Simulated assay, not measured.
Amino acid sequence: MTRTNNRPLVRAAAKADAGPLIAVLAEAFHHGPLADWLIPDPDERRTVYYRYFRDALHHGLQHGQVHTTSDQTAVAIWYPRPEPTPTDHHQRVEALERIAGVYAPKFVLMEEMFDAVHPDTPHHYLAYLAVDPTRHNQGIGAALLTDHHRHLDHLGLPAYLEASNLHNRRLYLRHGYTAGPTITLPTHGPTIWRMWRGTPTTNGDRTPFPHTTRRNP
């Protein structure tokens, strides 16, 4: 567990944290261009998002590394990716149909487009970083990032993520990420910024965004 200056205590999340952290995820991602594209109706979005992020949180607890704060006001879900990770496409489609119902096709399309250009270089993948909207601009998200970045620098590993809006893109740029080729979702969908935090080099820079071979779903 790590405390940085006056920032909150960062610790590993457990199953007992699931309820509050699912709520943080669903609320943090409820607004924005990606949310509007996935589910235009905000009331239906709230219901589907709770199911979607409940699945994401439990998957992260089982297969990844989930970090939170002492007051459960933020959550980060990381996945170590030492090599390309195949996805059981049919199983995932069935899961998204149960979770999202009539909105499943857009969720399937989004995840397929993200997977198709995911870097093959060994890295840690930040699938989600969420802060309670009432606690924005207090350095909480930065504390979660800094804690895991310190671990990655010790391991000599880069980090990768997708930023769904310009505010988040600026946050990650401030934390050492560079922007790679973007993803534009179809049917008037939003632009997604692919972000890479390389490993330190001897001249003080970081390794650049890696070349990515597009994979078919």
Results as ranks from 00 to 15, higher is better:
Pro133Gly: 09
Asp88Val: 07
Thr121Cys: 08
Asp88Ser: 12
Leu57Tyr: 15
Ala76Tyr: 08
Pro133Val: 10
Gln65Ile: 14
Asp120Glu: 12
Ala100His: 00
Val93Ala: 10
Pro133Ile: 09
Ile77Pro: 02
Glu97Asp: 13
Glu97Asn: 15
Asp88Lys: 11
Val75Ser: 07
Asp120Arg: 09
Val108His: 08
Arg81Leu: 00
Ser70Tyr: 06
Asp132Met: 02
Pro105Trp: 01
Ala143Arg: 02
Val75Tyr: 03
His124Pro: 05
Ile99His: 03
Met110Ala: 15
Gln138Tyr: 04
Leu96Thr: 01
Asp147Met: 06
Thr73Asn: 14
Pro82Ala: 11
Ala56Phe: 02
Gln91Phe: 08
Asp147Ile: 03
His67Ser: 14
Ala74Trp: 05
Gln65Arg: 15
Pro80Asn: 06
Thr68His: 09
His136Ser: 10
Ile140Arg: 00
Glu111Lys: 12
Ala116Ser: 14
Ala100Lys: 00
Ile140Glu: 01
Gln91Tyr: 08
Gln138Glu: 12
Lys106Trp: 02
Leu144Pro: 07
His149Gln: 13
Asp71Asn: 12
His63Ser: 12
His58Pro: 05
Glu83Ile: 03
His151Cys: 07
Glu111Phe: 10
His90Cys: 11
His151Glu: 12
Tyr128Arg: 07
Ala100Asn: 04
Val117Ala: 01
Leu57Ser: 02
Ala130His: 00
Ala104Lys: 04
Pro119Phe: 00
Pro86Glu: 04
Ala74Ile: 00
Trp78Gly: 00
Ala74Gly: 11
Thr87Val: 14
Ala76Thr: 12
Pro80Thr: 07
Ala127Ile: 04
Ala127His: 15
Tyr79Glu: 08
Gly64Ser: 09
Ala116Met: 10
Ala56Asn: 15
Leu57Asn: 03
Ala74Asn: 03
Ser70Asn: 15
Gly139Val: 04
His151Val: 10
Pro82Lys: 11
Thr85Lys: 10
Leu145Trp: 02
Thr69Leu: 00
Leu126Ile: 09
Glu97Ile: 07
Met110Glu: 14
Asp55Met: 14
Trp78Pro: 01
Gln138Trp: 01
Glu97Gln: 15
Thr85Glu: 03
Met110Lys: 13
Gly64Gln: 04
Leu126Gly: 01
Ile99Glu: 06
Trp78Gln: 05
His149Asp: 11
Glu112Phe: 01
Pro86Thr: 08
Val117Phe: 02
Ile77His: 01
His151Gly: 04
Ala95Trp: 04
Glu97Trp: 07
Pro80Phe: 07
Arg135Met: 13
Asp120Leu: 01
Asp147Asn: 15
His90Glu: 14
Gln65Lys: 14
Asp147Lys: 07
Met113Gly: 01
Gly101Arg: 06
His151Asn: 09
Gly64Lys: 09
Ala130Asn: 02
His90Val: 11
Arg135Leu: 05
His148Leu: 03
His58Asn: 15
His124Cys: 10
Ala104Phe: 00
Lys106Gln: 11
Gly64Asp: 04
His67Tyr: 15
Gln65Val: 15
Ile77Trp: 05
Tyr103Asn: 12
